[in-house]
Simulated assay, not measured.
Amino acid sequence: MALVRLAVTAGEPAGVGPELLVRLAATPLAASLVAITDRRLLERAARRCGVSIELIDDDGSPIDSRAACTLRVRHVPLEADEVPGQPDPRNASHVLATLAEAADGCLAGRYAAVVTAPLQKSSINDAGIAFSGHTEFFARRAGAEVVMMLASPQLRVALATTHLPLAAVPAAITPVLLTRVLRIVDAELRGKFGIDQPRIAVLGLNPHAGEGGHLGREEIDTMIPVLDALRGEGMHLLGPLPADTAFVPAQRAHYDAVLAMYHDQALPVLKSEAFDRTVNLTLGLPFIRTSVDHGTALDLAGTGRADPSSLIAAARLALLLVARGQEQHGP
C-alpha cells in the first residue's frame, strides 16, 4: 500500500526549520516525506546536525516504504544562501513560493497534507510583502474561511482572533465572526476528530467573563445571543466561561475543545504544559495543514540542537487526520 505523501516546508531558511526537517526525515515515520525547499539548504542543515541524509528528487511517484534518513525534495531555490540566525528579506519570495507549492499541491491532490516548519513573518514584511502568517496565507490561497487551533494530547484550543493587537480584539469579536468560527470548529471536530457531539467551551472576553456587565458588556451584548442561537441549532456550547478557571481539571472533563477570544488568552496554558507535543492546525481548509507550535528559534539556528518533537508531532497528527478522512470517505 502506498505511503501517504506529506509535503513539509522548511520555513525561514535562517531559522531552525531546515534542521528540524532533517531530523524528522531521520525518524522511521511511515510516510512519503516531500521537502519543499532548497536542496542545498537541506544538505547544509544535515551537516550542522551531524545527520547523514539521502535526498531524492521528487517525481511524484508513490512509494510503499521509506527508510529512515531518506527524504524526497521538491527543489525551490533560495535567493541568497542562509546565514543561521540572520533572516534575509531576499529569501521572502522563496518562503512564499514553498507555501504556494504546498497549498497548490494539496489542492491538486499531489500531497495528502502539508506540515509546516516555523517562518519569520517580520522578514517577509521587511521585504515589502504584507504577510501575517501561515494560517492567513493558506486561507487566501484556498479561498477558505479558517480557524487556528492548537492541540496537544490533553487539550484543543481554537482562536476567534489570531495575530491582532490586543487593542483591536474587542471590535473584532462580532456576532458574524463568532457564528462563523463556532460553526467551523463544530464541523471540524466532527469531521477531522470524529467527535459526534462536540462540546465547545467558549471563553469570555473580559475578566470573570464580564461579571454580569460590571467588567465589560461584550459577553452580554454579543456573545450570549450568539451562543443561544447556535444552541438552538443543536450545538453543545458552554459559556461564556471565565478564562482563569476554564482550564482546571474539573472543567476539562466537560468539553472537547476551547474557543479563546484572542491569541494569548489560552495558548500560554497549552504551551506551558505540552510545548513539545502541541501542534498548530488550520481548521476549515479543503486540505490538512499542521505545524509546529513554536517560532524560528534564531538563537538555536545553526547549532544542530533544536528539538524536533513538535514537528514530529505535527507530522504524526497529519497522518492520523489523513487516515481518519480515508476511513470516513475512502482513499
Rank of each mutant, 00 (worst) to 15 (best):
A2Q: 07
L3S: 05
L3Y: 01
L6M: 07
E12N: 05
G15Q: 02
L24S: 05
A26T: 09
A31R: 14
T37W: 04
R44A: 15
R48I: 02
S52D: 07
S52Y: 00
D57T: 12
D58F: 11
D59C: 04
P62N: 08
R66S: 15
L71E: 15
L71Q: 10
R74F: 13
L78N: 10
E79G: 09
V83Y: 05
D88H: 00
H94Q: 03
V95H: 05
T98F: 02
L99W: 04
C106E: 13
Y111E: 02
A117L: 02
A117C: 11
L119Q: 09
S122E: 13
I124C: 03
D126W: 09
A130Y: 11
A130W: 12
A130L: 12
F131I: 01
A139D: 02
G143V: 04
E145W: 12
V146R: 05
L150W: 08
R156F: 10
A160W: 12
A167R: 15
A171V: 10
I173T: 12
P175Y: 08
T179D: 15
R190N: 05
P198H: 14
R199E: 11
R199L: 10
I200T: 03
G204L: 04
G204W: 04
G216D: 10
I220W: 01
M223I: 15
V226S: 06
G239Q: 11
T245D: 10
A246T: 09
F247H: 12
F247G: 08
F247A: 06
Q251I: 06
R252P: 05
A253F: 02
H254F: 03
D256H: 13
L259K: 05
A260Y: 13
A260E: 03
D264Y: 09
Q265A: 04
V269L: 07
S272D: 06
S272M: 13
S272N: 14
F275S: 07
T282G: 02
T290N: 12
A297R: 13
D299C: 00
L300K: 10
G302D: 08
A306M: 03
S310V: 11
I312G: 11
I312N: 04
A314E: 14
A315Q: 15
A315C: 02
R316A: 09
A318E: 05
G325H: 06
P331I: 01
